[in-house]
Design a protein around this nucleic acid. Structure first.
Length: 403
DNA sequence: TCTGGGGTCCTAGGACCC
DNA sequence: TCTGGGGTCCTAGGACCC
């Protein structure tokens, strides 16, 4: 059997590039990729972090996720642009559709990157490296933004390769290049080796991926358990996972929201939970899913995050039932505290509710009525926009819980 | 008006069952 | 009447990704 060949395609500075394309198409004279600029949230509503940066902004040592405030300190003439998620989604879909023509086996990793399994495609394309260059050029010409393409014998190495030098580059990291191209890199550059792991590895005197690769498996597993196994393999460029479109997506869905100011009033907080639960349950029904585990997440003014959850006997997508549970979890766990962020999280999602009608559940008929009602409401809201209609009974729950 | 939002996966500890 | 051990499910917390 011949070696696998995997492409990893990654949009350069995705949010910033896509906004640049948008601005140019709408008569803006400047290409914001060529000036010190960032995409950033709204500081007034406390969303002030850097979401993407231009190459020049990067030279000022501006980092993704740092505060806009601090970015401006580093570069006073920095230009800040707001994100436009709908546009990003549109650009992402165009790119992904375009890439489908090159291989039937594609796996999208996030909004701006994907893998293509190109194994065996050399019978069609002859020179796959040349093909990668052609794809890169065609994307630039067709869509107006650039990508990096990493080529390797597995997903991990393809991903590492696309990260090498940016922007607008094709890189390979084949088996015989591991020693020269992978091993000199800082151990923190290894995929899935974040801040904490890097610190721990440094403590052990391990600073490069090559040094990591010189350690034996037992040693790494002693310190890092199952992550040690991963580190052992990854440092050697070993990854057996296959490219596959993730079908069983949606292990969980959630909404969290940083509040415009800190709330300490339970009623205000419940208003937010109410809104979030309505939105999430609508999504649940849209995706024809049911949830078993319902959780509330909150963060206080000291940035400490808390979460509490409870698991139901039967999966549900009934707004009233879920809201009741959300309120109960909140009431049981919220202590007087200044809350900065609050959210709802639904996990343990299943496609079928397989509800066993409990002999002791007297509300079966009522629930059936609810479900029909929600379907109708969803249809109307879909036609006329969000939350035109709200069931009065939800307000009742709200009121009851206020007591 | 310094610190977003949406995810996945792993681990430790406890409850409970046989 | 000095007390094991495996399996499963659940919760809370944490690391990591884009």
């Amino acid at each position: 059997m011949s070696e696998k060949i995997i492409f990893h395609i990654d949009v350069n500075n995705a949010f910033l590039s896509w906004t640049a394309v948008y601005l140019l198409q709408n008569g803006y004279s400047e290409d914001i990729r060529k000036i010190p600029s960032i995409i950033g949230g709204d500081e007034k509503s406390r969303h002030g972090i850097v979401l993407a940066k231009s190459p020049i902004a990067k030279k000022y040592n501006i980092k993704t996720a740092e505060t806009i405030y601090s970015a401006k300190q580093k570069c006073p003439n920095l230009k800040v642009f707001p994100p436009n998620y709908n546009w990003y989604l549109k650009k992402s879909r165009e790119l992904m559709t375009y890439l489908d023509q090159f291989s039937p086996v594609k796996e999208q990793l996030s909004i701006d990157e994907c893998f293509l399994d190109m194994s065996g495609m050399n019978y069609i394309y002859k020179d796959l490296i040349k093909l990668a260059y052609q794809i890169k050029e065609e994307i630039k010409e067709k869509f107006g933004f650039t990508v990096n393409i990493g080529i390797a014998n597995n997903k991990l190495c393809a991903k590492m390769a696309s990260d090498f030098e940016k922007p607008d580059k094709v890189h390979t990291l084949m088996k015989n290049e591991i020693v020269t191209k992978l091993w000199p890199l800082d151990v923190g550059d290894l995929f899935m080796c974040g801040k904490k792991t890097k610190e721990e590895l440094n403590q052990l005197g391990i600073h490069t991926i090559g040094e990591l690769a010189s350690k034996d498996r037992k040693y790494l597993e002693r310190y890092f358990k199952s992550q040690g196994t991963y580190l052992y393999n990854a440092s050697r460029g070993i990854d057996e996972s296959i490219v596959e479109e993730k079908k069983s997506k949606n292990q969980s869905i959630s909404i969290t929201e940083t509040l415009p100011f800190n709330y300490n009033n339970p009623d205000l907080l419940k208003d937010v939970l109410f809104r979030q639960t309505e939105e999430l349950t609508r999504e649940l029904r849209e995706k024809k899913l049911f949830t078993k585990t319902i959780g509330v997440v909150w963060k206080n003014s000291s940035f400490i995050t808390y979460q509490s959850q409870t698991t139901l006997e039967n999966p549900t997508n009934n707004t009233k039932e879920i809201l009741k549970t959300v309120y109960k979890v909140f009431d049981d766990n919220y202590k007087e505290d200044e809350i900065r962020l609050i959210g709802v999280k639904l996990t343990n999602l299943v496609a079928n509710k397989k509800e066993q009608i409990s002999l002791f559940d007297s509300n079966v008929e009522e629930k059936e009525d609810d479900n029909t009602m929600y379907e109708t409401i969803d249809t109307i809201n879909k036609k006329f926009g969000k939350s035109v209609i709200r069931p009065a009974s939800l307000k009742m729950i709200e009121k009851n819980n206020e007591k």
